[in-house]
Design a protein around this nucleic acid. Structure first.
Lengths: 121, 121
DNA sequence: ATAACTGTATTAAGTGGTTAATACAATTAT
DNA sequence: ATAATTGTATTAACCACTTAATACAGTTAT
């Protein structure tokens, strides 16, 4: 899975989202040690400064924490991770309904549209 | 409805999306004359240059066309408008499923999640 | 006719994100 | 002990987006 997809937002925001997704989806385990800033930056094809920025912002949410010279670690608070996952899902759902509404779809029409598999295949 | 909401992307892109939404949702009628660049810019709280950019990019898609000194008009091609609406809806749906997938939701779980009204109230 | 309005264009300045090239102190590996 | 690795910090440069201040030719309204 490539790190950078949509050129819409700033890269460091996309990095934050990518890291968040990997954590809440279980690709990273609670308490697990993360690769170094430089390695992560290399993987993402991004400048280390940019990755550093994304990580330090993630840190302010408590999702990860850094031991200054030994490395960076995912939080062990599984409840926090699950709550974040639920919160992100709610936001996506809400945003989806809002944007569909802007296209002129009613709530009923949105539900019909989602449950019909026109996209898949 | 305010023009600028998410600070994520460039303003001119958000303006394009806002205009597109107003067209496909029927707030603007096919063939209707648009307010002037300056008026639209004032409504959106944006510099006229930025609105001009959004409009000229919209023009390249054929959705609007400008009569150099008499004004700018929505296309009269209703089929084009409806197809754009369907296309935008498909994109939103697809994007929603992709992003939910990144959170670790299966397709079945996404459908369950959407059809249950946890967000609404 | 004259004033106001139309889309369009140009130049300059400011801002934020990104990259690049380093540097440092502290821990870990050999 | 010595070298490599850790997170962190700093400075400079570049680029896209945005705003600001105009300007122009052609149309419309009065």
């Amino acid at each position: 899975m490539p790190w950078i997809l949509n050129a819409s937002g700033p890269i460091f925001v996309q990095l934050i989202e990518h890291l968040q997704n990997n954590i809440v989806s279980g690709k990273y385990d609670p308490g697990q040690k993360l690769p170094s800033v430089r390695d992560l930056a290399f993987d993402a094809g991004v400048n280390p400064n940019t990755m550093q920025r994304a990580l330090s912002e993630l840190e302010s949410t408590g999702l990860v924490h850094s031991e200054t010279t030994s490395g960076r670690f995912i939080t062990e608070d599984k409840k926090m991770i699950d709550e974040l996952r639920a919160s992100l899902a709610d936001s996506l759902k809400q945003e989806f309904f809002i944007n569909m509404g802007k296209l002129g779809f009613s709530e009923k029409e949105i539900l019909q549209f989602v449950n019909q598999n026109s996209t898949a295949k």
